[in-house]
Amino acid sequence: MINKEKVKALAFDFGGTLDSPFMHWMQIYLQLYTTKLNLPLTVENFRDSYVFAEQMMERLQLVKPTHSLLETQMFKTRLQFDNLLDRGILPDTKDNKECIPEEAARLVTDYSSAYVIRSQKTLKALSQRYTLLLVSNYYGNLKKVATDLGIATYFSSFTDSTLEGVRKPDATLWKLAIERAGFIPEEVIVIGDSMKNDILPALSLGCQVIKGCPSIGDLSEEVNCITSLEELLQLLDS
């Protein structure tokens, strides 16, 4: 149960929590690529390319603080498709090198944007009652992306792993956000979709937690869970 009397702040993860229905982003890419672009991809043949792109995004530091969500996705999808071509999963054609990665980036950006827009009403209501913190493994442009998506005004701070030089699951990222905002862990609820990156690190600090789950079948008996962001209001009011 949530000890609502102590709660003063809500600390949100971003990717997989505010920009999708609590789904891992590899699943979302795969879903869009197979249903919208009709690409012959599976979890087995796409996973390595997804991981490769994530690692290279961090290593190459291509993203600047001024880059938009679309520009960020352009870097990522090009890395994914370069790897898919190098591994022979997709044929080495001009379309697969240029046109389709760009189309993929736009598809992913539209998907993410549409979901964040759905979150605005709930975030606005929550921001009127609590201090909201945004904490994410991101690329240095978390605040820019949140601003472009129309949710930045609801958050009092943005803690971006690239700017801080520390990544979740290291609990230090959550600790930095909480301490800078002037709270102690007991006063903060951490909301995230990942047990490894969000929930367990938050519990280790002494925070309260709420895990986002894609469906009722994914609910955990170990922690408080929601299947939509709107359920946060109900849970905190109950």
Rank of each mutant, 00 (worst) to 15 (best):
S119D: 10
E186D: 14
Y138S: 08
T131R: 14
P201D: 00
E179F: 08
G140S: 06
E231F: 00
I178W: 03
L123T: 07
K121H: 13
A105N: 03
S157K: 11
L200R: 10
I100N: 07
S113W: 09
L232R: 01
L173R: 04
L132I: 00
S136G: 07
C99D: 15
L132H: 02
E98S: 12
I151A: 05
V209A: 03
D148C: 08
I226W: 05
I151F: 02
D148P: 06
N197H: 09
D193E: 14
K124L: 11
T227I: 12
A177P: 10
S161R: 00
L205G: 12
R106L: 10
K143A: 12
S112M: 14
L176M: 07
I191S: 11
L142V: 08
T162H: 12
I151N: 04
A171N: 10
I178Y: 01
L219I: 15
P169M: 02
L229M: 05
K121L: 08
D110N: 15
R180H: 08
L126P: 13
A181L: 02
Q234L: 09
F158A: 03
I151D: 09
A181C: 00
A152I: 00
V108I: 14
R167C: 05
C207T: 00
E222N: 13
G192V: 02
R180P: 03
A114K: 14
T162D: 00
R180Q: 07
T227Q: 13
L126T: 06
T172K: 15
F158Q: 04
L205A: 09
W174A: 12
Y130H: 09
K121M: 07
D110K: 15
T162G: 02
I100L: 13
L133N: 02
A125H: 11
F158G: 03
A146S: 14
S204R: 09
A125F: 13
L142K: 13
S119E: 15
Y115E: 13
L200E: 15
A105G: 03
I178P: 01
E98F: 12
E222A: 08
L200C: 06
A152Y: 01
T109H: 13
D160I: 12
V116P: 07
K211N: 07
G192E: 08
V223N: 07
T227E: 10
S119T: 13
S157V: 04
K196A: 11
P169C: 01
S119K: 10
A181W: 03
E98N: 14
G150L: 09
E222D: 11
G165M: 04
V166F: 11
D193P: 01
Y115M: 08
T109K: 10
D170T: 04
A152G: 00
E231M: 00
E187C: 02
D160L: 11
N141C: 15
S136W: 06
C213G: 07
P201M: 00
S157Y: 08
L173F: 03
A181D: 00
I178S: 01
A171C: 08
G217Q: 11
I100H: 12
K196E: 15
K143W: 05
L133T: 03
V135P: 04
M195A: 14
L233Y: 10
T109R: 07
L163P: 03
Q128R: 15
Y115F: 15
A177W: 12
A125P: 09
S136Y: 09
